[in-house]
Design a protein around this nucleic acid. Sequence first.
DNA 1: GCCAACGTTGGC
DNA 2: GCCAACGTTGGC
Length: 138
Amino acid sequence: MQYFLIKSEPSVYSWDTFLQEKQTFWSGVRNHQAKNNLKLMKKDDLLLFYHSNEGKEIVGVAKVLTEAYKDDTAAETDKIEWVGVDVVPVETLKKPITLAFIKADEILKEMLLVKQSRLSVTTVTKQEFERVLELANM
DNA sequence: GCCAACGTTGGC
DNA sequence: GCCAACGTTGGC
């Protein structure tokens, strides 16, 4: 089991929209590091869903439904084959975990979310993942 | 292949 | 709105 964190601007695709749609193809990633992380995903891996720009907090947990496959939203002229994964919502955090809170927590401040703030798909350790859930459900 | 210029992301 | 971080582009 692996854990990841995916970022989305609420104005583009919010957690609420995701809940309503019940499933989405996570695509549009145009960064190699992020793409590599997408390719690492296996069915049933868990994802933290983070709202960037507005909110700046982890709002929910999602699950990987399918491994990465071709992202058809990429331009034909693009020589690189970009990928996406199908994901479904698992649970909404009782208490969203804000970035400020993450930075103040001894364990969570080491997250790649903080260290590589521009990367839209980052890996999360088991310890970090469990820490987020623990704090969110207190 | 280097690097300056420029564009984008995202926190503040 | 500003700016730091970082990716991309293009001239040489």
